[in-house]
Design a binder for these strands. Structure first.
Lengths: 213, 213
DNA sequence: GTCTATAATTTGATAGAC
DNA sequence: GTCTATCAAATTATAGAC
């Protein structure tokens, strides 16, 4: 098993182990017996916590992962020296994680969605909500930086698409080259969106020193 | 079955049917019995043409699809009124296909790679080669348009990542919104890459009127 | 080249003791 | 809450007749 039985609750161990299995082998490529072995929980326990079976477990994995990545983005955005550079920082962080993990998929959500979007409406919907929450976070960051809302929404959407696409390529090529390039180009797009509307005064923002929160 | 037995060779029918099944249900979500039913070929026939089984069949599907998309890009690039707009045209075409197909995955390659990159080196490698061939095509288009090679390579990589990412999001959201946005932003990046080096004379190109070929 | 039959394994899911 | 035992069905792959 991957985790010590002293660690966290059984339910959490199941979710964490399933997350990693999905990132390695996808949704259909991961069996409940594998999840059982990786989490140290029996199949009976899995059904105890997730009566809806594999599909319900996957929904929980998606929701959990969506929250983690959203918080990660917010944290990086808050600490960025310069708003457009937050995107480069985000991709750089993903690149570091990717190498450490021997090029496992950095995120299970896009892969699951691709596999089952035509057969599982609950899973497709959970993935769609995850992407929308990321788009909302990126959009807020851009609007705070002075990008007009319509352009900010479009750019935020493209950002999430670039994240997913760079994940696909980096995993396939076993290289973080595309992640770095994507961060650079996304920052460039963000900078253009800000400077191309210099007559719009930046929205009142707390000074960086006071916005640690 | 999806295809009339009068159509094409058995081998081609197997590849076309498998391509569509993979786009609907992914690699692990598609069984040989389903491929048999969809292609009108028996499982015995499938093993006759692809002695390597499902994996060898998938390699052929990836190689075939890679060639089709590469030719599509080259064709769109050759006909574009303005080089940067070729990218917007490409995404617009993908958007049209997506809606017609009820939001099936527009391409099986990225999904397969994500599922099996950790378990099948032949499939990971086939997908990696496909992406590299697309990057090379986009890079050539950008260099021909006057973008310096280093920047062109980076932009071409980001283009392919945006394609894959936009496919993931559009399929998940059941909307072509992200495809349109991606085309617009990619064209913007390409335009910036050209105009940001105005001192470089554009490479000699045949006039559009004579380049119909 | 195509077909049927089948081997060997694994799957998701359930029942019920403890 | 956790466990073992087990179900019916589906999976990849192979063998061998035609």
């Amino acid at each position: 098993m991957l985790y010590d039985e002293a660690m966290a609750s059984t339910r959490d161990r199941i979710i964490v182990a399933t997350n990693e299995m999905f990132r390695r082998h996808g949704y259909n490529g991961t069996s409940l017996s594998q999840i059982s072995a990786a989490s140290g929980a029996t199949i009976g326990s899995i059904y105890h916590f997730f009566p809806g079976g594999k599909e319900a477990l996957a929904v929980s994995v998606i929701e959990t992962t969506a929250g983690v990545y959203r918080e990660l983005f917010d944290s990086i955005a808050a600490e960025a020296d310069d708003p457009p550079l937050a995107f480069a920082d985000f991709f750089a962080g993903a690149a570091a994680v990717l190498e450490e993990s021997d090029y496992i998929d950095p995120c299970p959500i896009g892969g699951i969605a691709r596999e089952v979007a035509s057969t599982s409406e609950p899973l497709r919907n959970a993935a769609a909500q995850a992407f929308l929450s990321w788009i909302a976070a990126a959009r807020k960051h851009l609007v705070d930086a002075g990008v007009p809302p319509p352009a900010a929404g479009e750019l935020a959407t493209v950002f999430v698409a670039m994240v997913e696409g760079a994940f696909v390529l980096s995993r396939t090529q076993r290289s973080d080259e595309v992640l770095i390039a994507a961060g650079k180009q996304m920052a460039e797009l963000a900078r253009q969106a800000v400077v191309s509307h210099p007559n719009l005064p930046p929205v009142s923002r707390p000074s960086r020193a006071g916005s640690t929160r």
